[in-house]
Design a binder for these strands. Structure first.
Length: 630
RNA sequence: GCCAACUUAGCUCAACUGGUAGAGCAACUGACUUGUAAUCAGUAGGUUGUGGGUUCAAGUCCCACAGUUGGCUCCA
């Protein structure tokens, strides 16, 4: 290295490690360089004026370099095992890497161990990874000679006249790099699963086999990651939904969930929670029909733009469509009567059940279904009232998400190239959304040109306890439907004006939101939301009667409670209630019955001693109130 | 829809290269009357997702259908 600066800087940052581990140990962690801010191989030749940073395995960039090399090693192993394989692309992704490969004979997950052991051999061989450059002509020649048509396609689509290739042993791959110095640097990796993937994501193209894998700097990191995957699996809402008796699916209704009594409690409690918040803000609530004649969907534009996702039926020669959205029905209601500017903003909520055809392959538990309930609302406002109307929604979303302990990020999407409406309309719409966000003190990212053709929108991405993000809430300004349905209000001047309409959903799809909640809480719902809040556990048959008395007292206070009347021992009853994640267990026996008391056990805090029934009822009533309403 | 895999008792899963389906939990019955995460014993439960085929013989092999799972633009 011609420049000592980077090394100095590195040592300054890693002084402690260097003294305890020794110089070699620290240097051996270096896998790449960053020269003038650009990531390059260790073999990069430096100039005198270059600023150099060392990239180690412990940095995100270093890990990325390693995963990239891992994908090459995997491709090499596949080529050794299955000669004639054609390589697609092999990028790194958030938690690992993949490679898309066209194989003469398809392989499955059971072939992964074979590939893994071949990869281990390649690592043992300690093959140096060498960068080579080729001209366009040479590169295409190489593709031809090595029967790599996909690589040739990539080169043809790329700009520039020289292309870098990386060689390790007999394996060469077109790649931007950088890579590990040699294959031995790859320490902890695992192949996870295979899947089909269209070449360049286009279903008109051939289907390649995608092999997913991951790699980490140390064995421990890899173990931790695999452990996290296990944990995630345990929290899977499909598994917990079955175990906790919340919902089910049947062959007869793909993508159409059946809600069981406990699941209905969850769903209804969420709806009541939203209602309570909306009522405070002066919302009204409506219900529009599940199916309406297709004339309506022609006016709304859905027949033009959403037909592929709709279900239809025919009766008496009339065509009906099952609603995929609630808005067109809401438009008819608005149009029924004249509206004065004095009654705006008009906030109309609908917990509407909608159905959308989703391709069979994309259905996924409650996360992707064909029938779901939205916490929808349409807000009709004057231009003057727009900003405040938006701000009110932003604040409501904040309260709702914080109730569940979700952190979230927001994005504002602005006018796309293809759009309707005038410049003035878009200007008012976009600046109102911006101003509302800023006044609320909410940070947001700008997605230029990502808005809908009919208006700009705010999207919410919430982050769950496992660090995954989900898109749920959205606030959309719609200039299209008021136009199509000719929605107006009577202004101060006595003349009709075009009304401004906002769509807004906070939970989005209740089904999806519940799936997220189940995984977020791992089935341990907060008290106010738990399907069963209290389990009364008589110590023996003799105290069942008193147990039932306790149950009735709690029921009268609006608490969801069960009594375990089985003739099992107390330990067994506790276990059952714990497995069901019931927040409170009330043990009742001789002492309790005599003194009108209960012994309280909390699902996480354990035995909390005994209190009088009266005190407990008051306490639980307090805990049962909807959060965020004070 | 496409690629791959899976579908066995209510649930979770067994059954070697084809030889006639088994366990735990749950349910039911009985005994025990229980004090903070599983009391004991017994009983019952299956046209192996559906339909077809190969075979002396199919849970196992082949085909079709259904459902489920992992994926299907994070561009060398």
């Amino acid at each position: 290295m011609s420049d000592g600066f980077g090394i100095l800087k590195y040592y300054k940052e890693h002084q402690d490690e260097a003294s305890t581990l020794g110089v070699a140990a620290v240097l051996s962690q270096v896998v790449a360089l960053k020269v003038n801010g650009v990531l390059v191989d260790l073999s990069f030749s430096l100039g005198p004026a270059d600023t150099v940073e060392l990239v180690t395995l412990s940095s995100p960039e270093g890990l990325d370099v390693m995963r990239h090399t891992a994908s090459h090693v995997m491709a090499q192993a596949v080529l050794r095992l299955y000669p004639g394989a054609k390589l697609g692309v092999g990028p790194t992704i958030e938690n690992g890497f993949y490679y898309d490969i066209l194989l003469e004979k398809p392989i499955g997950d059971e072939d992964l161990p074979t590939i893994e052991s071949e990869m281990k051999k390649i690592i043992e061989e300690k093959l140096p990874v060498v960068r080579e450059e080729m001209t366009r002509e040479k590169a295409l020649e190489w593709c031809e000679k090595n029967h790599q048509p996909f690589k040739a396609e990539i080169i043809r689509d790329l700009e520039g006249e020289t292309f870098s290739f990386y060689r390790q042993g007999e394996f060469v791959d077109l790649c931007r790099g950088p890579h590990l110095p040699n294959t031995r640097f790859l320490k902890a990796f695992k192949l996870l699963h295979t899947a089909g993937a269209y070449w360049r994501g286009d279903e008109k193209n051939p289907m390649l086999t995608r092999i997913y894998g991951t790699a980490f700097a140390t064995k421990e990191d890899l173990e931790n990651y695999l452990h996290l995957l296990e944990e995630t699996k345990k929290r899977d809402h499909r598994r917990l939904g079955k175990e906790l008796g919340l919902f089910s699916f049947h062959e007869e209704g793909p993508g159409l969930p059946f809600w069981k009594p406990k699941g209905v409690v969850l769903k209804n409690t969420l709806i009541e929670f939203m209602r309570a918040h909306q009522r405070r803000l002066g919302y009204v609530e409506v219900e529009t029909p599940t199916m309406l004649k297709d004339d309506l969907w022609r006016i709304s534009g859905h027949m033009e733009n959403f037909k592929e996702n709709m279900f239809f039926l025919e009766k008496d020669g009339e065509n009906y469509a099952i609603k995929p959205m609630n808005c067109p029905g809401g438009m008819l209601l608005y149009k029924e009567e004249l509206h004065s500017y004095r009654e705006l903003p008009l906030k109309v909520a609908e917990f509407g059940k909608v159905h959308r055809y989703e391709r069979s392959g994309v259905l996924q538990g409650l996360l992707r279904v064909r029938g779901f309930t939205q916490d929808d609302a349409h807000i009709f406002t004057t231009p003057e009232g727009l900003k405040d109307a938006i701000r009110e929604i932003i604040e409501l979303v904040d309260v709702v998400y914080r109730t569940f302990g979700f952190s979230y990020s927001t994005a504002l999407s602005t006018r796309p190239e293809k759009s309707m409406g005038t410049d003035e309309q878009w200007e008012l719409a976009t600046s109102s959304l911006k101003a509302a966000l800023e006044e609320s003190g909410i940070a947001y990212t700008l997605q230029e040109g990502e808005g809908a053709f009919y208006g700009p929108k705010i999207e919410y991405h919430l982050k769950d306890a496992l660090g995954r993000t989900h898109q749920c809430g959205t606030i959309q300004l719609d200039m299209n439907l008021p136009e199509r349905f000719d929605l107006t209000y009577v202004g101060e001047d006595g003349k009709p004006h075009r009304v401004i309409m906002l769509h807004r959903a906070i939970l989005g799809s209740l089904e999806r939101f519940i799936a997220i909640l189940i995984e977020h809480y791992g089935g341990k719902f907060p008290f106010w939301l738990a399907p069963v809040q209290v389990a009364v556990l008589p110590v023996s048959d003799r105290f069942v009667e008193y147990g039932c008395e306790v149950k009735r007292a709690l029921e009268r206070a609006g608490i969801r409670v069960t009594v375990d009347t089985s003739s099992e021992k107390l330990g067994y009853k506790i276990r059952q209630a714990q497995l069901e994640q019931v927040p409170y267990m009330l043990v009742v026996g001789e002492k309790e019955a005599a003194e009108k008391k209960v012994s309280v056990r909390h699902r996480e805090e354990g035995d909390k001693g005994s209190v009088s029934l009266e005190t407990l009822v008051e306490e639980l009533k307090r805990q049962n109130r909807f959060p965020g309403l004070e």
